[in-house]
Design a protein around this nucleic acid. Structure first.
Length: 625
DNA sequence: GCAAGGTC
């Protein structure tokens, strides 16, 4: 008979269920808990090598259990000068809607000897693990705590993790609590300062919260930055040499190796030298196989970028729909940074589930029938989730219009990952005319392979090039010197914005779309549909007069680092890393960062007139940006 | 009434 009791806690119900099913091997009891419809307790017995036969309760939380806020005395906006929020006492409380879950943990812990944590193996997961631990300790101060190391919920992997418990990583948990404290203090202090000072300027701002956040401001900064580049753009005239040769009734345009130059006299001289030479000579003829690589396994950032580019939805909508598809069990967990499938992942099994799909079933059949290729591996692995993939086949009739689009994208992407690269033949011809070099490039697509299913990528054969012999000379059919103008950049599109956020570490895969939504809700930016390019309908971002005013106002304050640029956030990221690697403590990081931001805050307060002037200029007088 | 991060 099993002797000891063990309490297992996952970060979310889906993980608890999957792990319980694998460990229980069929014999498990499911119980609802009081007060929460999502969290369940699974009970079964399991023989852990470390602890012997145990009576197991497997349950979960729903992400973070607690939240940090200011002490009651500082909660009202006018209770203190905003600067005091850098030092004001804070309290960690169970979030109101999580009380039932917390009670369940404490209660289950009472009779358990061991708490075995199954939170995600990432920084936030480590912190959530620590939150669960302190809750369990309330129920049983003597409970022993371990955690499982796992990166997916495949059966063998889960069993391995159950056999090899490790310790919670305190450093990672501390790094997260540093982030939580800094975001709260800095965000609240600047938000109250801005809102209280600027609202008074105009009745138009009466009900506007003018928030500041370490992610939302850099996000706004990217939009404003591009806006300035569009607005300040001055077209420049350039000159170039264009040559064409007609052979076998095919007009071949050769491109100048220098592309174009901004000095007319120089181009004139070079062109005259060419004309003197009369004949052009073929200096390179190369035909070689080429390929277009199949895409990498799908991450969240990529889903948001490609979704906002191809699906006529914005990233926030794409994520909301992906979440729904996940909850219905059609696709895997939609928040992942991993772009590699582990070696033991049952890809063929997943492909077989698509065989009966009316649209791409036949393509899946091709893969299962022998064309299957192991997906490429990207560089990222969050050690918590596999790439996004379809889990079961969803017939088009059971999905609404947006669900259909997102499910189709996820599935086509998955099929493409398991396909062969597209194959083609590239031809490069280089000629010399006088002292100048020109080249022509041709492509023949030979096998479309993954392109047959991944309709979002375009790779098409160019015009067939006639044959040229190395060393032959010939007279060009046409040669001109011509001019052109540089074209302005366009406003930032949603996929570009997400790309910038990702590259600069602004937000996480799960929150990027929220930050974008936030700066829209705050009326800092507006979006409009970019003039249609093909069948796509991508959104472009234009800052409002308020958004420009805020960024300009801060730029006019003499700060060492700009609050609208990603540096400060990047620095925070590096400091968190330092905590994880044991080079700094949580307190050191919090103190350092608060000192730094306090200084920015004091200067902002001192030069608040610069901010007020800017906002007045743009918003109150309705001056056009 | 503030942040950003989990997840439903």
């Amino acid at each position: 008979m099993p002797g000891q009791k063990i309490l297992c806690v996952a970060e979310k119900p889906a993980i608890a269920k999957a792990v319980a099913q694998h460990l229980a091997g069929g014999a498990l009891t499911t119980r609802n808990i009081q007060g929460n419809q999502y969290v369940k307790n699974y009970q079964f017995t399991y023989n852990f090598p470390a602890w012997g036969a145990c009576e197991v309760t497997m349950t979960s939380v729903l992400g973070h259990l607690t939240g940090l806020d200011f002490d009651q005395r500082y909660k009202h906006w006018k209770s203190c000068p905003p600067s005091q929020l850098f030092d004001a006492p804070t309290v960690t409380t169970i979030e109101t809607d999580k009380q039932a879950i917390a009670d369940n943990i404490a209660q289950q812990a009472r009779f358990s000897r061991i708490l075995f944590l199954w939170t995600d193996c990432d920084r936030e997961g480590e912190h959530i693990g620590a939150e669960v631990r302190s809750q369990a300790l309330k129920g049983n101060p003597r409970i022993q705590v371990k955690r499982a190391k796992f990166s997916n919920t495949e059966r063998n992997h889960v069993i391995q993790a159950a056999r090899n418990p490790i310790d919670l990583d305190e450093r990672q948990a501390n790094a997260v609590s540093a982030r939580i404290e800094l975001d709260l203090r800095i965000g609240a202090a600047f938000t109250r300062l801005q809102t209280l000072q600027l609202q008074a300027l105009s009745s138009k701002l009466e009900n506007q919260i003018l928030s500041y956040g370490s992610c939302q401001f850099p996000t706004l900064g990217f939009v404003v930055d591009r806006y300035y580049r569009v607005r300040n753009f001055k077209p420049e005239v350039f000159w170039l040499i264009k040559v064409m040769h007609k052979r076998d009734n095919i007009k071949v345009n050769f491109n100048w190796k220098r592309v174009h130059l901004f000095d007319r006299a120089t181009v004139t001289i070079l062109f005259e030298q060419c004309l003197d030479a009369k004949l052009a000579k073929v200096t390179k003829v190369q035909r070689k196989p080429t390929s277009k690589w199949r895409p990498l396994p799908l991450t969240t950032v990529e889903l948001q970028m490609q979704g906002s580019r191809f699906l006529r939805m914005n990233s926030n909508e794409v994520m909301a729909v992906a979440e729904k598809l996940y909850q219905k069990g059609f696709i895997s967990y939609p928040r992942t940074e991993t772009d590699q499938f582990s070696g033991d992942f049952d890809l063929r099994g997943l492909l077989r589930r698509q065989l009966t799909h009316p649209v791409w079933g036949a393509y899946a059949q091709r893969l299962v029938g022998g064309e299957f290729k192991q997906p490429r591996s990207g560089r990222n692995n969050d050690q918590a989730h596999p790439p996004i993939h379809p889990v079961t086949m969803a017939a088009p009739t059971v999905l609404d219009a947006n669900e259909k689009k997102v499910y189709e994208f996820v599935t086509r992407r998955f099929l493409a990952c398991c396909s062969e690269d597209a194959k083609g033949e590239a031809t490069d011809i280089e000629i010399e005319w006088g002292l100048e070099t020109f080249h022509a490039h041709g492509l023949v697509v030979l096998q479309k392979n993954y392109l047959d299913v991944y309709v979002y990528d375009k790779w098409e054969s160019s015009q067939q090039l006639p044959s040229f012999q190395l060393g032959e000379t010939f007279e060009l059919t046409e040669a001109n010197m011509t001019d052109g103008k540089t074209t302005p950049p366009s406003y930032l599109t949603e996929p570009e914005l997400i790309g910038l956020m990702d590259a600069n570490g602004i937000g996480t895969d799960a929150t990027m779309a929220e930050h974008i939504q936030k700066i829209k809700d705050r009326h800092y930016v507006q979006t409009r549909t970019k003039a249609a390019s093909g069948r796509n309908q991508v959104q472009e971002f234009i800052p409002t007069v308020l958004g420009v005013a805020l960024i300009e106002g801060y730029d006019n304050i003499d700060l060492d680092v700009s609050v609208s640029k990603p540096f400060l956030r990047k620095e925070m990221e590096l400091k968190m890393k330092a905590i994880c690697e044991g080079r700094k403590t949580k307190n050191e990081v919090v103190d350092e960062s608060l000192t730094q931001y306090r200084e920015v805050f004091i200067k902002t307060q001192r030069d608040i007139d610069a901010l007020k002037q800017s906002v007045t200029k743009y918003v109150v007088n309705e001056g056009r940006a």
